[in-house]
Amino acid sequence: MVTIAIDPTALPALKLMAKRAGKDSVQELAGQILNEWLVKNKADIARELIVDRIARHRMTQFVTIPFVRTGSIEEAAETAYRKIRASRAQPPLMMAEPMSILRAHDRPTGDRLVKRYFSTLRRQFDRNLPAIAISETLKKNGIDSTFLHYHCLLAIPDHEELRFRRWSQNFWSKIGVQKVGFPVKPSIFRLDSQDLAIRYSLKNVDERYPIENIILSGYDAQPA
């Protein structure tokens, strides 16, 4: 974890700001301020960071983790809402939402589960396993919100591919039921080139994308 150096003269004010903002630490507040500055100034750091990390290893698996119950009422409602919106009719009345979907405000929960996935993968396959997760809650038009999902790239050895796929499906089925109330069903595809890895991971990442929405694992070790 990177520590942000803070001028001692600014520390008392930052502690007060962190307390008022409900942050656990000054470091958390400082990270938020940095992210907001990067997004505001369209620094494009997220894209550069992702490309740099992908280039360090041969990523072999592309995994999408969708936090939505397959065939749920929310998927049907979302489709209906898009059609209504397109015809400029009035949107339907909001109904009580059962636990079958995670949204943007649930990202802390999604982040914890993805980090647990990566941590368990390291114990199962490689203690320095390189992995990247990019969270998304916006459709490609950048306007309509959609359910929380993650696009992950992992450097799984070729000879472990079948075991990795079976293990991942089993992990998300169990952890989904335990933590969010429904089995999560990841889609897993083999990556045949670094170019594909970059294109898939950057498809919805632009200069407004906050670096805090990227989860990195296994990058403390030097690449082989």
Results as ranks from 00 to 15, higher is better:
Leu29Phe: 04
Leu202Asp: 07
Leu162Phe: 09
Leu153Met: 05
Leu216Val: 03
Asp44Tyr: 07
Glu212Val: 09
Asp24Val: 08
Phe171Arg: 10
Glu160His: 15
Ala21Leu: 10
Phe182Asp: 00
Thr70Glu: 11
Ala43Leu: 03
Arg107His: 15
Thr120Glu: 11
Leu14Asp: 04
Glu36Pro: 04
Asn213Thr: 00
Asp158His: 15
Leu153Ser: 00
Ser145Arg: 11
Val184Leu: 07
Ala89His: 08
Arg58Asp: 11
Lys139Trp: 13
Asp111Arg: 09
Pro108Ser: 03
Leu14Phe: 00
Phe189Ile: 07
Arg165Ser: 11
Thr60Trp: 06
Asp195Asn: 10
Thr79Gly: 09
Ile6Ser: 06
Arg88Lys: 13
Arg88Trp: 15
Leu196Tyr: 10
Lys40Cys: 05
Glu75Gly: 12
Ser187Tyr: 08
Leu191His: 02
Ser135Gln: 12
Asp44Ile: 06
Ala221Ile: 08
Ser187His: 14
Ile175Thr: 05
Pro157Leu: 12
Pro186Asp: 07
Leu93His: 15
Asp52Leu: 13
Met94Arg: 13
Asp158Phe: 13
Gly181Asn: 03
Leu154Gly: 02
Thr79Lys: 13
Ser173Ile: 07
Ser87Ile: 08
Gly142Ala: 08
Thr137Ser: 14
Asn35Met: 01
His159Tyr: 14
Arg122Thr: 02
Glu74Pro: 05
Arg122Met: 09
Ala86Thr: 10
Arg122His: 11
Ile132Trp: 00
Ile143Phe: 12
Met95Tyr: 12
Tyr117Gln: 02
Glu36Gly: 02
Lys15Trp: 10
Leu148Met: 00
Ile156Thr: 01
Ser145Tyr: 01
Val2Met: 11
Glu28His: 08
Ala133Leu: 04
Lys185Ala: 10
